[in-house]
């Protein structure tokens, strides 16, 4: 992998990679409870929770934006707390209750945060939206939505590249009135 454009480019003979062909990762069994459904998976321990959701279980609502904990598109709730699912391994979550964007609505009835995001057009491309919504659901529970500035600060882990921030803020403020 090549990192961000820096001023000096590299130039060397035969760059060595650190990795060596070592032992294979033996599969590890893990039991996850996702959106109320129990799953038993045998996974390579290298599989992140995000990749387990997207590639193994086809729960693709959680998005991979950066895969380095920097964008928040992969935000899910673990035992009610928001985390970045890209920086945690699936095997670390034995027995945990995981809620993803797919688990927020009650049947056809949207979660108030989901409904507010539609009402206030809190998105454009929609790719950061599941992470924004999961994060906002947790934010309201944490009681960190008491002013515009507080909401902005406590939503700073979710990047919206389209820049729908004013509408995201409006949506969260409205959802707060409906959930508390």
């Amino acid at each position: 992998m090549i990192g961000p454009n820096l001023l000096s480019a590299v130039s060397v003979e035969g760059v060595e990679r650190k990795s060596t062909a070592g032992p294979t990762s033996d599969l590890v069994n893990v039991n996850l409870k996702i959106n109320g459904t129990a799953y038993s998976l045998d996974v390579d321990p290298r599989v992140t929770l995000l990749d387990a959701l997207r590639e193994r279980l086809h729960l693709t609502g959680s998005k991979k934006g950066c895969d380095h904990g920097q964008c928040g598109a992969c935000t899910v709730l673990i035992n009610g707390r928001r985390i970045n699912s890209c920086l945690t391994l699936a095997v670390m979550h034995e027995g945990d209750e995981i809620t993803t964007i797919e688990g927020l609505a009650n049947g056809d009835e949207l979660h108030p945060v989901q409904a507010a995001f539609i009402e206030h057009d809190g998105f454009q491309c929609g790719y950061c939206t599941p992470g924004q919504i999961c994060s906002a659901v947790a934010l309201l529970k944490e009681n960190h939505a008491n002013s515009d500035d507080e909401i902005r600060e406590w939503m700073s882990g979710n990047i919206c590249r389209c820049g729908a921030y004013p509408n995201i803020l409006a949506a969260i403020k409205e959802a707060k009135t409906k959930t508390t």
Partner: peptide
């Protein structure tokens, strides 16, 4: 960090955080 990362990160781990120097973080730099 962010609220999500603070929910994950431990105190012990925080002590052992490694530098974000670009040249350290990207092995393509020799």
């Amino acid at each position: 960090a962010s609220p999500q990362l603070r929910n994950m990160a431990t105190v012990g781990g925080n002590l052992l955080q490694r530098t974000r120097c670009y040249y350290f973080y990207d092995p393509a730099f020799p």
